[in-house]
């Protein structure tokens, strides 16, 4: 693959330069530059309507920016050949906000689908792989034949994650991974992503509203506000910023609680 000019190096996995997005007369992004480094978890935050989801969709080559470029694994998504894009797509996994499981396929077939699409693996191997992914996300084999409509929201998220991990991707996109989960479930989901990150050496780009998730997972945070990136950096640096949005978002009552936990954790286990 031509994209791997520097395997194992510190090349950014995702590289956004000078990105502009407009919907008609409305400007959504006005010149955004963002790098996601290999092996890190990048949290993308911003108010409602600030264009987080649009930015994510542009990173997934589902939408085209007005101006600027998005490179993933060094490949310019909006200016490359089809085959190159296909190759990139097989190296990332995406967890959509509502799981986006195929409602006509069982849990097992949902996860097996990307594996079968390779047309290289036999059914016995696919069986082993599907069950190991299911186990990885903490779903018992007895649920494998169920249809998505028979599952709870938390299970749909987990199975969506298992499907995103089916091809053992290097890069994982998470859109609101804990939205719609109760605190207990969302905590265990966060823990799951932490474990998987260790086990699979993943880079993660995560859009989230949930401060607890952000504090627990993100190495760096990018704050999207007023069409630009207000700040990119470790969460503690970002929270120090003097800006109305940051103050409300991170240093509101909820934010302070989440940050307190962070401080406590760091006191107990100095990094």
């Amino acid at each position: 693959m031509a994209a791997d000019t520097n395997p194992g190096g510190t090349d950014p996995v995702v590289e956004i330069t000078g990105l502009w997005t407009c919907f008609g007369q409305t400007i959504v992004h006005a010149g955004i530059d963002l790098d996601v480094r290999r092996g890190e978890v990048m949290g993308l935050v911003g108010g409602s309507g600030s264009g987080k989801t649009t930015l994510l969709r542009q990173m997934l080559a589902l939408e085209r920016p007005h101006r600027g470029s998005v490179k993933v694994f060094g490949v310019d998504l909006h200016g490359c050949a089809r085959a190159e894009l296909e190759a990139v797509r097989s190296r990332w996994g995406v967890l959509f906000q509502n799981g986006a499981l195929f409602s006509a396929l069982s849990v097992y077939d949902n996860i097996a689908l990307p594996l079968r699409e390779l047309r290289a693996l036999d059914e016995a191997l696919i069986h082993d792989l599907v069950l190991s992914k299911l186990q990885m996300v903490g779903i018992e084999a007895q649920h494998a034949r169920k249809m998505p409509s028979q599952l709870s929201g938390g299970m749909i998220k987990r199975i969506g994650l298992a499907r995103a991990l089916a091809l053992d991707p290097e890069l994982l996109f998470l859109d609101e991974p804990t939205a719609g989960l109760d605190p207990d479930r969302s905590e265990s989901f966060v823990k799951l992503i932490q474990e998987l990150r260790e086990e699979l050496h993943l880079s993660v780009v995560m859009v989230t509203h949930d401060l607890d998730t952000l504090v627990a997972l993100a190495d760096r945070v990018a704050v999207l506000c007023e069409h630009r990136l207000l700040a990119v950096g470790p969460i503690r640096e970002v929270t120090m910023l003097e800006h109305a949005f940051v103050r409300n978002f991170f240093r509101g009552e909820r934010g302070l609680r989440a940050l307190e936990v962070l401080e406590d954790m760091q006191r107990l286990m100095p990094i």
Partner: peptide, 19 residues
Amino acid sequence: EPLFRRIEAARASPLPSAR
């Protein structure tokens, strides 16, 4: 090691039979 253990366990867990 963990990878192989994971596959081992996946092998052992029975899949409910198709409808």
